[in-house]
């Protein structure tokens, strides 16, 4: 339960960190909040030759409004800061609703938004929110920066589109769409445990109250965030009646998720949870879209 030996560097600047990352490649690991990395090292599941600690770099954290009305967050922004920021509640309410469901307060005090994204645990909340909101990831290297859309960023189990010589610098959430409602719901055995299943729902209504656009993204029901586009498409141009919601929930649970089951929940039970949670999420999202149009 103690980490194997490793070297440690705590650069003061992103440029220095990028140079270290380029020099050490896949022998190095970046230390952000460490709330998943350190346990993995304590268990010796990971034995990096060197840890590059990003915590002494100034300017990698913080939240700001973008010119287009969205939110830009530095990768090292602590989850507790995201949770408490009034602008997040206003301009990215789905993210605000997901935040308190991430582990425990002590974990969120250290855990960072970027660290959780790059870790890409299929049971994590933040990647699901990023896909549901079409977030954009800005990755830095010694050769400059590139931007990656959320659905391309998450590649597979614990795999994201970040090379060993790159560092995630920021995440941008686009402006919140008008006439839109949201819900983030999950089921865990105990508060703060990894969820057995969860879903993020976003619905946008047209002037007549019908669904113009819907998004359903699932947590812990596949190799990464599961974007159920067919189920969400079933809702397009429909009124969000209980029957329409039921049909979408049934389709997603039967055909689009890929639960593997685990010691706490069989795959069948996970499908059941997906169905129930989708119903709840869409019902809540539809009501919020009606009551909070902007």
């Amino acid at each position: 339960m103690k980490p194997a030996p490793f070297d440690y560097a705590a650069p003061d600047s992103l440029a220095e960190a990028l140079s270290l990352a380029a020099a050490h490649g896949s022998d190095g690991k970046l230390l952000a909040g460490g709330q998943s990395l350190i346990p993995a090292m304590n268990f010796r599941l990971l034995q990096p030759a060197i840890l590059i600690d990003l915590n002494r770099i100034t300017g990698l954290g913080g939240i700001e409004r973008t010119a287009s009305g969205g939110l830009r967050m530095g990768a090292m922004t602590r989850q507790a800061q995201v949770e408490r920021d009034a602008r997040v509640a206003q301009f990215a309410p789905l993210l605000a609703e997901a935040m308190p469901q991430i582990a425990h307060p002590q974990i969120r005090n250290r855990g960072t938004i970027g660290g959780s994204m790059v870790h890409a645990d299929p049971a994590a909340e933040l990647p699901v929110v990023a896909v549901a909101l079409d977030a954009v990831f800005e990755v830095a290297s010694q050769h400059g920066r590139r931007r990656i859309e959320a659905k391309a960023f998450f590649q597979s189990l614990f795999m994201v589109d970040v090379a060993p010589d790159e560092i995630l610098a920021a995440i941008e959430f686009p402006a919140w769409p008008t006439n839109s409602g949201w819900a983030f719901v999950e089921v865990a055995r105990r508060r703060g445990d990894y969820a057995l299943a969860g879903v993020a729902a976003v619905v946008t209504l047209d002037g007549g109250g019908k669904c113009r656009h819907a998004r359903l993204v699932y947590l812990n029901l596949g190799d990464g965030p599961v974007d159920a586009q067919v189920a969400a498409g079933l809702l397009q141009n429909e009124s969000l009646t209980p029957d329409a919601i039921e049909a979408a929930a049934n389709h997603a649970a039967a055909h689009e998720i890929d639960p593997t089951g685990n010691i706490h929940a069989s795959a069948d039970f996970q499908r059941h949870l997906a169905r129930v949670l989708t119903r709840r999420a869409l019902t809540t999202a539809a009501a919020r879209a009606t009551h909070f149009p902007s």
Binding site: G34, Q35, I38, P39, L51, P105, Q106, I107, N109, R110
Partner: peptide, 8 residues
Amino acid sequence: AVRSCLLL
């Protein structure tokens, strides 16, 4: 409040 076992 933080977990001291998850910090170096």
